[in-house]
């Protein structure tokens, strides 16, 4: 049985490799998704590969302060598109995280890094912190960690999310 699974896996990889490598960069994420779904229907996937594929297309890429300033300089009135794009990418990840505690714990770490990264724009730190709060509401086991994050996060980002936080102390 083992060799049969290996053959099936190899066929799966070989049939999808050209699709992955010869797709333009912007399409690669889509092809990764296709790859995952095809694998899941045709081949019994090793857990490790499944995890990698799941994470690949959803990597968070927060915009920098410079990028946001450039966007606001050219359009002072609107919320920078890079902030909205970042928020849009959070949606599917959060929806997954709200489904299972296991996924939530993994994503919580990613949100923590983002929240505590003081080089990021404050609004991005705050967006990540607000998602930390939502996860904690669903999984109270995270509460202690959330409080530590809030204490370590920049005061500006905490004030945006929870203006009473400092007053309560």
């Amino acid at each position: 049985m083992k060799w049969k699974n290996s053959v099936l896996l190899a066929i799966g990889i070989l049939s999808l490799t050209p699709l992955y490598f010869f797709t333009p960069t912007t399409k690669k994420e889509n092809s990764t998704i296709i790859k995952t779904s095809v694998f899941q229907t045709q081949v019994i996937l090793p857990t490790q590969i499944n995890k990698e594929n799941k994470n690949l297309p959803q990597k968070l890429t927060p915009p920098s302060v410079d990028q946001i300033r450039q966007e606001v300089a050219s359009d002072p009135h609107s919320t920078p598109i890079s902030i909205l794009n970042f928020a849009a990418k959070l949606g599917p990840k959060m929806e997954q995280a709200l489904e299972t505690e296991e996924t939530a714990l993994v994503f919580f770490e990613e949100l923590k890094k983002c929240t505590l990264n003081s080089t990021l724009p404050v609004s991005i730190q705050a967006i990540c912190l607000s998602n930390v709060q939502i996860l904690t509401e669903t999984y109270p086991i995270l509460e202690d960690q959330m409080n530590i994050i809030k204490e370590q996060a920049s005061a500006e980002s905490v004030r945006l999310i929870d203006p009473l936080f400092f007053e309560e102390e």
Binding site: T79, P80, I83, L84, A87, L98, S123, I127, I161
Partner: peptide
């Protein structure tokens, strides 16, 4: 629903405005 896609966009807008 908190955390959902629509919530994320509105939340980002709120935080940007607040700042």
């Amino acid at each position: 629903k908190p955390g959902a896609a629509a919530w994320q966009i509105l939340n980002a807008k709120i935080l940007d405005n607040k700042s």
